[in-house]
Computed example of a mutant assay.
Amino acid sequence: MTIAAASSFSAPADKGVGPLLRAWRERCRISQLELALRADSSARHISFIETGRARPSEEMVLRLAEHLDVPVRERNALLLAAGYAPHYPETPLDDPALDALRDGMERLIQGYEPYPALIVDALYTVVAANRGIAMFLNGVPESLMTPAPNAMRLTLHPEGLAPRIRNLPEWRGHLLTQMERRIALRRSDALRELYEEVAAYPVPEPDADGEPAEPVAYFALPMRIEHEGRVLSFVSSISTFNTPMDVTVAELAIETFLPADPATAKYLHSLAG
């Protein structure tokens, strides 16, 4: 697959910037004094901002957001709530300005072959994937592939990869927890709807007649998936961009799957050969 154009914890902006900043501070579990020390301000000034008695400057909003690890999209929301223009653009992924970025990401995941790798946006829409991912998608119905495949649907849908994932309950729990954390940051209605959809998918009963897997000491929770009669094991890693200055770029994630045992690595290299 090649990269294509892809499609937010935030309270209503009409409550003002103060309650929003207080919510982010409480989420980080830090006091007004600690935030003030980090932002080179005073606890009194932070208190006045949160209660609406003082209007923060644009610079102060951005500084507080930085120290509270507020996602880029939500920093724009804070600025709007404070009466300022958004600071971070949201460039469409197919914009020529992002040509170098798209080309670099595609080269990155292609260079990871024969191991699987893909790129997703904030709603887990797959915007690019390499051949390592493509080999798992044989037999997946077209309805899950169009108009654009969604990584969570592909993995957890009963007609997707779910029936082939040997440790589905554990892997499903890992993915749902990951989504819950993202929802806590973004409070996106679309993301919440996706979560409710995939969380409601039925979980196949384990095969009582199947042979128990040999106990293996993994260094991270693996995804154990059946492929053409053998079980492959992978651990995943997710990478994002450091200090992004664009909403679209900030919400892209590159997920790579590393073989969790020598047998899986050997098999993938044999396919590549």
Rank of each mutant, 00 (worst) to 15 (best):
L80N: 12
L101K: 04
D95Q: 00
D94Y: 01
D103W: 04
Y88M: 11
P89D: 00
N76S: 13
H87E: 08
A85L: 08
P86F: 04
L108P: 00
E106R: 10
A97Q: 08
D99P: 00
L80P: 06
A85F: 01
R75F: 05
R75P: 12
L108W: 01
A81G: 05
M105I: 15
A82P: 12
M105Q: 10
Y88Q: 07
Y84D: 14
L78K: 11
Y88W: 15
P86A: 14
D99E: 06
A85N: 03
A77I: 15
A97W: 00
A100G: 07
G104K: 07
A100P: 00
P86H: 09
P92L: 02
P92T: 04
A81S: 09
R102M: 03
Y88G: 12
L79K: 12
G83F: 07
G83M: 07
H87G: 01
L101P: 01
R102E: 02
L93H: 07
A82C: 12
G104W: 03
L79P: 10
L79I: 13
D95S: 07
M105H: 07
P96Y: 04
D94V: 02
A81R: 08
N76M: 14
L78P: 14
D103N: 08
D95N: 10
Y88K: 10
E90L: 02
Y88E: 11
L101M: 14
L80R: 15
R107V: 08
T91H: 08
P96H: 06
A100H: 10
L108K: 01
D103E: 11
P86L: 11
L80H: 13
M105K: 05
